[in-house]
Design a protein around this nucleic acid. Sequence first.
DNA 1: GGGGAAG
DNA 2: CTTCCCCAACGCCCG
DNA 3: CGGGCG
Length: 349
Amino acid sequence: KNAKDVVRENEVQTVDVVKEQKTLVEKRVITPGAKERKSLLNPTDETQVRNICGHDMKFTNLSKVYWPKDNVTKRDMLNYYYQVAPYILPYVKDKPQTLNRYPNGIEGKTFYQKDVKGKAPEWVKTFPYHSYTDGRDKEFSVITDEASLLYVASLGCIEINPWSSKTQTPDNPDWCIIDLDPDKNTFEQVIEAACLTKSLLDAIEVPCYCKTSGSTGLHIYIPFGAKYDYEQSKEFGRVIAKLVHAQLPEFTSIERKVSDRSGKMYIDFLQNRPQATVAGPYSLRPKPGAPVSMPLHWDEVKPGLSIRDFTIFNAIDRLKEQGDIFTGVLGEGIDLNETVKKIESLFGG
DNA sequence: GGGGAAG
DNA sequence: CTTCCCCAACGCCCG
DNA sequence: CGGGCG
Ligand SMILES: [Mn+2]
Ligand SMILES: [Mn+2]
């Protein structure tokens, strides 16, 4: 049996299963605290102080234009993260952050910051680590609530880049990420690769959820429920990436070196390593249009889908209509032993 | 973006 | 008080 | 070891 046929057969089965479940499962998820939030910052004052979670927080440079082509300011960005906080927090709460800072907007100089030791307010939780680069003990910042989310945003972090694991179980990711990074590809090819990944995972009865990256690609998340370590997540990602690549060799690649990819889409599974990150769900991106990494229904992942359709201007409206459709990634993790057995029986290991 | 030194 | 300057990642992988 | 990579 070749892998494609196996996927086809199982596609039919799983489609039926999903249809039956749909009427039961399609209840809209209620996100606590998300109803009718007022705006956090007024449209005029350049500096404003707000008490959030008991902390007096000062927000500065609020009229600084972060997205010049779209005339979106730092104030707009902070108001967005305030509004989206109830939706984004379940995915970032208690996760150490890689800060990707744009203090002068998306066209200004940018830098990464991991260590916030002695720099963040004392109420911002941190996670200690040792840097082998310079032999010093340092601390990641951790988002724990609305205040710490807004704190990192106020530093110019347009993107929210959380670890896949929480401080409680730092070695055990909540999910495995398949990151589709197109190069000289059409977006239809990205969609095709995502749908093939979905079919393949359906065939081995592994749940998966898709979102736009907000940039050019798509992210597929598989719930791991902190049951395994990063090495296991990465190796599972590698197996899936190889299977997808084997079926779409014409336009995908799993080569790490860019020049070895010859313009093909990179199926990036290496973000499933300790401390590696991608922009989380509902994160803004430092790109023209002020796009948002937006969770999708699988039936939206088809030609016609456009990443630029999901932006700071409409993300909250979509959330109010649809609710949070990404909660599945927070569900119970897959059974890796069972899954590996299914892969072996269907695809010959 | 923020802190500290210099002007 | 304003202006200037400086600082703000990391670890794996491969040749 | 240095450079590429995301
Ligand atoms: Mn990507
Ligand atoms: Mn990537």
